[in-house]
Design a protein around this nucleic acid. Structure first.
Lengths: 241, 241
DNA sequence: TAACCAACTTGATATAGATCAAGTTTTGCA
DNA sequence: TGCAAAACTTGATCTATATCAAGTTGGTTA
């Protein structure tokens, strides 16, 4: 049987699900809690908050003692330098936990903005710290450790690589992430603009556009509006290296 | 009185100090332990291991359930891609804790190599996990969170910046780190080669060399062998932005 | 459904930094 | 202490990608 049939469409809106069915519950909720206790969590932790396109989840220097789980949709995190220039540091899709870099000083360090209508759950850190839930701390520790690895990987993808490698690796990264979270590997919506992709990868928009055109011409990918089709995954993976 | 007089020379070898005097003890040793209990820690945790230049601390895929504290000297972490090309992901000096990205899967993900004679203490993770030392877990969590921020900062320094900005920011970063750890802010030894700096910053060696020459010509820095002097910190900081 | 604005594309040209080349200086070892 | 190898520097040339320019396409709103 084709695995694809079981997969959710990336294109439609998903239904919000309860904490006790959520794939992120090992992080969100102290591991020891049973279903009846989950119901007692305050509403802001139990129910996802809906953000519209361009809504800000948090801004630099804002006190922040929570993480956020992206239940659906997508966000971008960015800084703005002294000359007012935006620099995107990360994109986050369904299944990502964001805000880990602010644990160290209790304040946000980037802007975090919804790129489309998105649902995020707030995970209050004081709940994780309240008791000696060492098991939970371990999960959290693994999560942060994994994020450090991801940041290194992104760095490796941008330093000393060609424009084509960066874009190929970027697309493969999205594809892998979506597949791990139950979506199609070869057909998905790109929630970010070419300008955002370019900024994230340290390239000019025009260069990103040219790479997309070139990949399309080689029948490696195709696009229809903001939907991307990966037609030759092996070739793309090889480019990404 | 000049603060400099109190600072250790970066140039000479430091004496190993005991755990109970060590500035890293909040991370290395479960916080509750008193001096008499520290003595009971096994020798590998209590005493730093000495590495000679080019010695490998760990290699990718090697099982790793420890962090390492750099007590003196310096190391570089790097990956080697499928074409055998080295890419340096980080440098670490006295006071750094390394290996955090391997917590998530219990195995090293990079090579870690001593750049000079260095002393590192092994911090076994199972000791931190053994009991419900939530306080320690919190320290560790903050440490990892901080590292994520550092990785972002390094990324910001390399993406969409000029060669001059990268080098200026790199030098300022070293200067700040060394100052925070009790060394001189304006005069220190560069333990890495120009080739390593170039690789780390995504530049060619020749470009790094030219930037150094240009900064020297502008009387912003000076070098004598591997000693670097920062002569105009304000200008350098402004370049780094 | 028009019309406007943002996003995207494609082409022409400019340039920062890579690469190639040929020294010079420094380091480490016999 | 001297010599070889490695590290570094400087100059000349090349190139990948930025920048500038001028469209085209697509999405949103009246």
């Amino acid at each position: 049987m084709c695995r694809m049939n079981h997969r959710r469409s990336e294109l439609g809106m998903r239904n919000p699900i309860q904490c006790n069915q959520c794939s992120m519950q090992s992080i969100c909720v102290p591991a020891g809690l049973v279903s009846s206790e989950i119901d007692k969590l305050d509403k802001s932790s139990r129910e996802p908050h809906v953000y519209s396109k361009r809504d800000m989840v948090y801004s630099p220097d804002q006190p922040l003692n929570s993480l956020f789980a992206v239940k659906s949709g997508s966000v971008k995190c960015y800084t703005i330098d002294s000359e007012g220039k935006q620099q995107i540091t990360s994109f986050h899709l369904t299944g990502d936990i964001i805000g880990m870099e602010s644990i160290s000083n209790g304040a946000a360090v980037t802007y975090c903005e919804a790129m489309e209508t998105s649902m995020l759950c707030e995970i209050k850190l004081n709940r994780l710290f309240a008791q000696n839930f060492t098991g939970v701390d371990k999960n959290l520790l693994r999560l942060l450790s994994h994020r450090i690895g991801q940041r290194n990987t992104h760095y490796l993808n941008v330093v000393n690589t060609t424009a084509e490698q960066r874009v190929a690796s970027f697309i493969m990264g999205l594809s892998d992430h979506l597949y791990e979270h139950g979506f199609s590997r070869h057909e998905f919506k790109l929630p970010m603009t070419r300008t955002d992709i370019a900024n994230y990868l340290g390239l000019a928009v025009e260069t990103v556009s040219r790479v997309f055109s070139s990949l399309k011409q080689k029948d490696i990918i195709d696009t229809k509006q903001s939907i991307l089709f990966i037609q030759a995954p092996a070739e793309l993976k090889q480019m990404a290296n």
